[in-house]
Design a protein around this nucleic acid. Structure first.
Lengths: 333, 333
DNA sequence: TTTTGGCACTCGCGTGACGCGATTGCCAAA
DNA sequence: TTTGGCAATCGCGTCACGCGAGTGCCAAAA
């Protein structure tokens, strides 16, 4: 793709800037009036035909203005657009959300998803990749009858939503013993190594084996190397492009999670990614996926992004993602 | 309101049965063809004008068929409609959902909401009224640094999502003591009595007071006499009546919870309630709220319902709500 | 008194014609 | 290379029109 002249870029940017706001094809006269009063509309027109031939623009019909193409949006998002600084209100809103002490990294990314969706008003997706989870402590707490709460503390999170059934007559003494054994078994271990459960065999003590198996099951089911959360699924309804059915499909798909992974996953060295169109942005028509890499303490751990209409306020989204990602790093670095 | 003749009821039912399926005004000829081949369309017409004068029907325009009014739907739901028995698949689907052992009543009503929404394909709302909660056990479990998980077990639920900060140097010995004291203070108490916290004063032991206050705070914030959960908020998109904006408003309102209470609350002796129209069904146009009372062990404890388009499959909804309510009673009775 | 067939009447809806206005492409002059 | 002028294109809103669905009414039949 040949490099565009400065003026072509200026004009292309003008088209997109206007189109993002008005949602109607922009004419040569519009560009002259709003951005370039010093050249005639005819001049702009001849540039427009060139841009159209290069694939950046298209006309819905002959007597209409121009509309940006997907590659134009990409160029815009990566190069042309102005960074839109966040307002003080936005900044403090974000900071506010993150100021509580949080023990679980899952809660952090949930919060991040919520704040991104709230502030941008698009659907948000946050991906957490984490294959370096070390167990710090495992504990069972007898609750009622023969049921115990299982608490698993890792370097990144506190799991406390699962239960295990205790054998009959399992009193506090046994529980204490079980806790000691559980800690011997699990503390300090990386979750990756647990695939091999042979080390369990050593503790073949009657009655305890079921508990150990139960805890292992819980760890395997709840600690995943990849987590993905979304928020604001229904925000898509605010954007009138596209019909009701596709909105419904959009929300259902997002809710089900399947495939979201591929949508937001990226090569690790891409800081800021924009995917547009049916091929790239899942099966969603007229949608774009914008995502940014975030790190915790320098290590690459995931991406945060939004899914919204192609005609999206990329500048603002860029700023929000940037800031939230920075916060994430600071918070958990 | 004068009682309708048998034939008028039959005709009214025919109109609604057809309209629920076709969503188009139903004509006298339609009724003759599909329901009453033995009378002429003219006869049906004269009945229709009578029903129209009584307020049960209306015509969008003069050369259109009839459309049921809100009071017609109410009559239909309360008296006219046929009970639509659930399929075996539906029944086993519901039973399946409820067969896991669940410790927390909150989880039960969440599940109930999910299954109702899944099966009816409407938005569901489940209200839980419960002012008779007795604390069985309170426990803190030291986790990391100076943070402890607070576990509160009542006769209805297990709360385990809150933390309390421990004073410096608070080791396992102190935690054990704190647990003993907490149990002395809380076990056996009804949550209602906790408004008066004077009994706390006795335990004015240095360092412990902060923990007790923290736990009390957690109980007060998390055990509420009324809980409300919803599911399938976006199901409304499947129903084409009403525009996109109102769908958006619908979803936002449901998500925010405010006012849902009034929507589903009912006089305790109404088993099955149908609210229709802007006055009754919140601020939603073309929406109906159908709810049924459920009990746990004979005591009235809440209502389960759906919010959907006025043109709703009342028969099916009735059956689903009925069955789920019965399951709830059996499950926790 | 109720039911029925017949018939004129109403009105929404789809279609096609038409004219306006927005915008373009092209071209010749600057 | 830029510009003003101008004919050409085409979407969109409006209007007229005719079809068809469905009704209300009425007089005759049951």
């Amino acid at each position: 793709m040949a490099e565009l002249s400065k003026r072509k870029k200026e004009i292309l940017k003008a088209v997109i800037d206007d189109f993002i706001v008005t949602a109607t094809p922009v004419s040569s006269q519009d560009i002259k009036d709003n951005h370039m009063p010093d050249v005639s509309s005819a001049t702009i027109r001849s540039e427009l035909v060139a841009l159209e031939e290069m694939g950046y623009l298209s006309q819905p019909h002959v007597s209409a203005g121009r509309v940006p193409s997907n590659i134009a949006y990409k160029l815009y998002a990566n190069e042309l657009m102005q960074n839109k600084p966040l307002t003080k209100k936005d900044l403090s809103l974000i900071r506010e959300q993150f100021e509580d002490k949080i023990l679980d990294i899952g809660d952090v990314i949930k919060k991040a998803a919520k704040i991104i969706s709230d502030i941008t008003n698009y659907t948000s997706v946050v991906l957490l990749k984490d294959d370096d989870i070390v167990i710090r402590n495992v504990k069972i707490v007898g609750l009622i009858e023969n049921t115990a709460l299982v608490i698993i503390i890792t370097n990144k999170q506190v799991l406390k939503d699962s239960f295990v059934t205790l054998p009959k007559g399992f009193d506090q003494g046994y529980i204490d013993t079980a806790n000691d054994l559980l800690n011997d078994m699990f503390t300090g271990r990386n979750v990756n190594e647990l695939g091999d459960i042979d080390f369990l065999i050593e503790n073949e003590i009657i009655g305890f084996r079921a508990i150990f198996d139960g805890v292992l099951e819980i760890i395997k089911n709840n600690i995943k190397p990849e987590n993905i959360v979304t928020d604001g699924e229904y925000k898509i309804l605010d954007y009138p492009d596209g019909d009701r059915d596709s909105a419904k499909r959009f929300i259902s798909t997002i809710k089900q999670r399947d495939g979201l992974n591929d949508l937001i996953k990226e090569n690790d060295d891409i800081e800021f990614s924009v995917k547009i169109g049916k091929d790239e942005a899942g099966d969603f028509d007229n949608c774009a996926v914008v995502s940014a890499k975030y790190t915790l303490g320098g290590k690459e751990v995931g991406r945060a992004g939004v899914i919204g209409p192609v005609r999206m306020d990329y500048g603002r989204v860029y700023s929000v993602l940037n800031y939230v990602c920075k916060m994430l790093d600071k918070l958990l670095g």
